[in-house]
């Protein structure tokens, strides 16, 4: 049987039976997109590989809890994104919640609810030192808050629909749209800054 011909749900069903080839095929399909998302979130290759590996192991160990009515890609992205966010929180990365409340209704409110703390872990300069994430857009992306970054990556790198992003991030559709709009707005400003 050619496992490459099976869809994700069929592969997950076989994985539930403990078939290693099914796990491998799922891994082949999603290792790049999942790693790509996690890497852009944690912005460190070693950490990203750790987190992506943990995400896959966690998903595979809990494969029997996967609901086939849900898209497998959404499920694995949700697990990976949650783990990346957890890792960011544990490391107290400067990108977490210093830019104001995510639910702020306006830019002014966002600035008012934000606060400044020194960035001890990663700086824009550190980003540029990173060869892979050193391009203009990657540097700008690194300055987005994690929620915005996840939404923009899922939309523009992975090509997910707003509804799928809403499922992955477990957020209302309207919130996802707001995140994407604000994230792109910030990217626009940051790219203009770099251009000047």
């Amino acid at each position: 049987m050619d496992y490459a011909q099976l869809d994700d749900r069929e592969l997950a069903a076989r994985a539930c039976e403990g078939r290693e080839r099914a796990f491998r095929e799922l891994l082949v399909r999603y290792e790049r997109p999942v790693f790509s998302l996690v890497f852009r979130m944690v912005r460190n290759r070693e950490t990203a590989e750790d987190v992506a590996q943990e995400a896959f192991v966690k998903a595979f160990s809990a494969i029997h809890t996967y609901n086939p009515s849900y898209r497998f890609s959404n499920w694995i992205f949700k697990i990976a994104n949650n783990m990346a966010i957890d890792r960011l929180r544990k490391r107290e990365l400067a990108t977490v919640s210093i830019d104001g409340a995510p639910n702020a209704g306006s830019t002014e409110e966002e600035h008012r609810t934000g606060f400044d703390i020194p960035d001890r872990s990663e700086t824009p300069e550190a980003y540029t030192e990173n060869r892979e994430l050193g391009s203009r857009i990657e540097v700008a992306m690194g300055r987005l808050r994690p929620e915005y970054r996840t939404a923009v990556i899922l939309r523009h790198v992975e090509g997910h629909s707003y509804q799928e992003i809403s499922d992955i991030m477990e957020l209302p559709l309207g919130t996802v749209k707001t995140y994407i709009h604000r994230g792109r707005g910030e990217l626009k400003g940051l790219l203009e800054e770099v251009a000047v």
Binding site: R32, F39, R40, E132, I137, V157, L187
Partner: peptide
């Protein structure tokens, strides 16, 4: 944004 590539492990 459209030119952002996927990154490989």
């Amino acid at each position: 944004l459209a030119e952002i590539p996927r990154l490989e492990p």
